[in-house]
Design a binder for these strands. Sequence first.
DNA 1: ATGAAAGCGCTAACAC
DNA 2: GTGTTAGCGCTTTCAT
Lengths: 344, 344
Amino acid sequence: MINIRQSDIAKELNVSRVTVSKSLRDHPDISPEMKAKVNKTAKELGYIPNLIAKQLNSRKTYTLGVVIPDLENSFFAFIVDSIIDSATERGYHVLLMVSREKEDQERKNIENLIGMRADGLLVCLSQETVNTSIFSQLKKMKIPMVFFDRVFETMGFSTIVFNDKKGAMDALDQVFQSGYTKIAHFAGYSNTNIGNERTEGYLEALKKNGIPIQKNWIIEGGFEVKDGYDSFIKLFNQGPLPEIVFAVNDRVALGAYNAARSSGLKIATDIGIMGYGFSETAEILHPTLTIINQDPRKMGQIAVNTLLEEISNKSQNISKKVIIEEEFLWKHSILKRTKQYKPK
Amino acid sequence: MINIRQSDIAKELNVSRVTVSKSLRDHPDISPEMKAKVNKTAKELGYIPNLIAKQLNSRKTYTLGVVIPDLENSFFAFIVDSIIDSATERGYHVLLMVSREKEDQERKNIENLIGMRADGLLVCLSQETVNTSIFSQLKKMKIPMVFFDRVFETMGFSTIVFNDKKGAMDALDQVFQSGYTKIAHFAGYSNTNIGNERTEGYLEALKKNGIPIQKNWIIEGGFEVKDGYDSFIKLFNQGPLPEIVFAVNDRVALGAYNAARSSGLKIATDIGIMGYGFSETAEILHPTLTIINQDPRKMGQIAVNTLLEEISNKSQNISKKVIIEEEFLWKHSILKRTKQYKPK
DNA sequence: ATGAAAGCGCTAACAC
DNA sequence: GTGTTAGCGCTTTCAT
C-alpha cells in the first residue's frame, strides 16, 4: 500500500510540511499562489489525507459506533440505513457492530468502539443484557451514548423509544369500535422494555374498553417467526379461538400466519392478525399485515441527531427521552366491520 | 471524555511508559511481577488502549471498509451481517458505507475509506457506476479490494459472484422437464453484470431446450418491486399470458405477485412465478416463492476470506474469481406437474 | 529487566 | 507568508 504524505508534497515543492498542511486546509497564512501550487501537486500525486493521524492529533474521529443485536432483522437494517444516512450527511462515519443478542459480545463491541475512540455510541441492547457495568464505565469516561429501541431507562443516558403503550391503545380502540372484542396477545420476553410496554398497552386497552382479560389468550414467547408459530398452535389447541391475534412484532405475526394456514384457517376471514411492525414488511405479507406502525428511519434519524447534540454539548450531561408516536394502519389481515361506534 | 493513557499507569507506578507498553503486550523483556503490577493498575484505572495511536504507528487498522448500494435491501443486509461476522471472528472492524446507487457517493465513500486507512475494501457497485478511475487509483495505491455481486471483471480485482447462468439453466431445465414451456422473463438493467448474466441464462436455457424465444415476453425494467409490478401489467395487457414469470430477483417477483393479484389472477394456479432470491425472503411471500437460491451469507464470508488473504499476501497481486453455485428450490409459487420427463 | 530516543502523519503555537 | 518546535498515544530500536 503506497500512500502520499504531506511531506512528499513538501519535498516536491521545496517548502516545509507545515506550509503544505496549512495550504491544504486553506489557512489564511498562506498566499493564494502557494495554495494553488500545493493543491495542484497534491492532486497530481494522488494525495489522500491520513485521517488516522488527524484523529490522533485532534482527539476527534468523526466516527459513530453502532451496536445492534442482529442485522438480518430488517427493522434494524432499516434503522442502520437511516443512521448511516444521517451520519454521512453530518460528516460522520459509522463503525457497525453486531452483538448477536449476546451480552458478552455487546460488551466487547463497546470496548472496541471505545478503543477506536468513536465520538459517540448508538446502542440497541441485546435481549439478555442485564449487567450495566460497561455503561457505567461509559458514563464515567463521559463518552456520549444514546440508547434506541431496547434501552435501560435509569442510567442517565438519552433514550429513543416508540410510544408502544399509546400505540396499542389507539389501535385497539379502533379494533373495538369496529366490533371486535376477542383479542389474543402473543407477547415477547417480558424482561425487555419493549416486551413489557407492548403487553401493558394491550392490557390497558382491554381495561379501558371494559373487556375482561382472558389469561390463556396471553401467550408469552420470543420475538421470532418460530415463536409466533408455536404460540398460535398452542392457542389453537387450547379451545375456542379469538377473533384477532395481536402479535408483539411482524415476525411473530408471520409465524401466526403460517400456523393459522397449516391449521386450515384463512387469514382475515377466519382469524384476524395484527402486530407492531413497519410498512415495508407489512406490505410483503399476504394479506398485508395490519400494523401499529413503527418508523425505523425516524428512529435512526432522531438517534443520530440526539447523539450529535450530546457530542457537541459534551459538558452538560443532560439526557432526554424521545418518544416516537406510532400510527395504526388497518391493512388486509383483519376484515373491516361496519359496526356503528357505541360510545361507552 | 476522559481517557487513561499508558503514561498515567506509568506515573502511578513510577516506571517508564515503555515498561507499561511492553507489559501490556506481554513482552518477554518484562518480569512477571512487573507485568502483574501493570495489569492490575491498568484494570483499576479502567485503561482502554487507544487504537488510533496504535494504528498510526503500525500503519495497520484492522478495519475493513464495506460499500453497498442500499442497506434496506435485505439481500445486502444479510451479506453485511455475514461480513461483520467473519470480520469480527478474524479481529477486524467494519466501516460501513452506503452509495445509494450513486456513482458519486460511491467514490466519496471509497475516498473516505482510504483516508481512514482501511486495510482493505469490499465493494458492491452501484447501478450507475461506469467510471473506473477510483478503482485504478486503488490499484495504484496497492490497496486490497474485492468486488462482490456487482463487479467490474476486467480491472484485476478479485470478484465474488453467483453462477447465475448455470443457476438459470439448471432451474429452467427442471421447469421444462415438468412440462412448462411458456416462460416470460422480467429482466433487470442490462448494463449491470447481474442483469446481463441472468438474461443470458434464461436465453441459453430456452435455446438448449429448443424453446423459441418470444421477444415480447422479455421485459426489461429495474430491480425493484415497482418494476415487477409494471412489467406484469405490461405483460398482462399485451396478450396471452405465459405459464410462468421468471423474475430477475425476489423484489421484482413480489411486484409480479401484486400485479397478478390486482389483475384477478391466483399465483401458482393461474400464473407461476419464480425468481432469483434467497430462502428468508422466499419464505415470507405467500405462496412461498420458487427461487434460484443465492446464499448471501456465503457470499459475505467468501468475500472476507478472499480480502484477508490478499491483505496478508500484499505483494503478490494475484486476483481470483470466485463463483458461488446456486440451488433451485421449488416452493409453492409454481404448481408441481407430474409430467414424465421426455429426453430430447 | 528497564528506560531513553525517535518516529508514525498530522496540526497548533510560536518564531522569523 | 513561511518555517521551527513540540506533541497527539503508542511502539520499535538500541542503550544501560
